[in-house]
Design a protein around this nucleic acid. Structure first.
Lengths: 261, 261
DNA sequence: ATTTCCTATTTGTCTGACAAATGTTACTTT
DNA sequence: AAAGTAACATTTGTCAGACAAATAGGAAAT
């Protein structure tokens, strides 16, 4: 006798209301930038109190589905989700999984290599001159000995993001966001420990030259070498750190989500 | 003169408190399944009222970072993020971007093909017999003429999820989740319109046979054909629908996130 | 010893109110 | 008459207090 319990109030009023509004947005009943009723009106319409409505709205705000403003022309509006926001969300979620030990850095490294590799293949034919210029600029910067370690790491991130952007596929950028960002703390750790900047810059240069020549194979090969060095150095760093008990002490620095509501 | 506004009250008390708690979780100050203070205690500690604390907690609950239970042994606990949950979040976020027109189905199709293709390569060496058995089972089911359209689509999803799982890389599964799920409604549309089941099942079979033989190239080639047919049929379906004004009327059906708090 | 009931604790929801922000409107001044 | 300014109305943000619902532990009765 399998009884259906799903219709009951298993999840709290606020949750149910949040779901209803979310569904309305997804179904298109509420369009982007459309203002939904005031909290009082919503409370009356759902036959609950204003705090309950507010909790529902806060849940949606946490997912960046709505934004709120005070004042006569204020209210709650449907938010247009941007790719940048979604990327950040995915990066945060992935970083959380890593810090909880649900994802191994090895798996992430492999995924990053595979995805960046196919980005190389696509970028070899699709890259624009402007993107090549950005890469060249970053390589030049990475060879500046006066650059701080922190700025060097930032430059490394920008280089790889430009590589992925050169594939000209937003969906691919989205899929790659998580693995790029959540591997970066480990990359930073290595660079801080060994300061092997010249090697990194040279491999970036090799990759860049291959893209200039539209040489997909060359670019993929350069990337493979880059990732190999990274993996090797990371393992060395881990062994050298002499704390094998806590292999994932790397703390994600990428939180800092831009707030706007 | 770039002035730092970050220290001011630009974002509301609840937001700030939510961020503080989130940071505490990410920093490891709050461990998984650890119970944090009661709402009253938190209210006192942050010097705000209980509703404000509640709003902050709701924001975190919306991100599945915490769960709450009533009762003496109840309270608010740090949630262990699971890969399945994170996958669902990413799939929802991607579906939202698609429904808002921020991501084209073409881009997603390309990304899905590329990622599934490399899954084929990895799966050719890593697939287990159990996973092969699941695939064979799904193919067999897909050839059952009494299967409903809905069940057929579900079987298609399961087949591709098994393919990705056969790569044995959780990070890759995560990256693929968004593009798989958000393309599925379009796939469903095609299957519903043309009922071209036999062709789909045969291509699945070809892919399956290649994986049995550990033939990476064969698997990738089969997948390419599958995606080509899909793309062609989708374009045909779109032209046949005679409503070129609204090219993205496909509604994501994948919401239905499991609730548990 | 087991079952049942009571109770304490904690979150969920409600009511009511005030504070802060912000666009509008009316008024005053030049 | 035009422009600046002040008051106002509207809406979200926050607060205070209270009760309801759920739940686990203990007490009491069989």
């Amino acid at each position: 006798m399998s009884i259906q319990y799903q219709g009951l109030v298993t999840h709290g009023l606020a949750s149910q209301i949040a779901d209803k509004i979310k569904q309305a947005i997804l179904d298109g009943a509420l369009k982007v930038d459309e203002r939904l009723p005031t909290e009082e009106e919503l409370a009356q319409r759902f036959a609950v109190s204003r705090p309950t409505i507010r909790e529902a709205l806060k849940r949606l705000a946490a997912q960046h589905l709505i934004r709120s403003r005070r004042g006569p022309t204020g209210g709650t509006f449907v938010n247009q989700p941007t790719q940048a926001e979604t990327r950040l969300m995915m990066a945060n979620a992935t970083a959380l999984l890593v810090s909880m030990g649900e994802l191994s850095l090895g798996d992430i490294a492999e995924t990053r290599q595979e995805i960046e590799s196919l980005c190389c293949r696509l970028a070899a034919t699709r890259r624009t001159d402007a993107q090549l210029a950005v890469m060249a600029e970053e390589i030049k910067r990475q060879r500046d000995p006066t650059l701080s370690d922190q700025d060097f790491c930032a430059s490394d991130v920008r280089f790889h993001c430009t590589l992925i952007a050169s594939a000209h596929n937003p969906a691919l950028e989205l899929a790659a966001a998580g693995v790029i960002e959540s591997l970066q703390p480990a990359v930073n750790l290595m660079i801080f420990r060994f300061r092997d900047r010249a090697q990194v810059a040279n491999q970036h240069d090799t990759l860049y030259q291959a893209l200039v020549a539209r040489d997909a194979q060359g670019a993929m090969s350069a990337l493979t070498h880059y990732m190999d060095v990274l993996t090797t150095q990371y393992q060395a760093a881990q062994e050298a750190s002499e704390t094998p008990k806590k292999p994932r002490k790397i703390k994600p620095v990428t939180a800092q989500a831009p707030r706007h509501e």
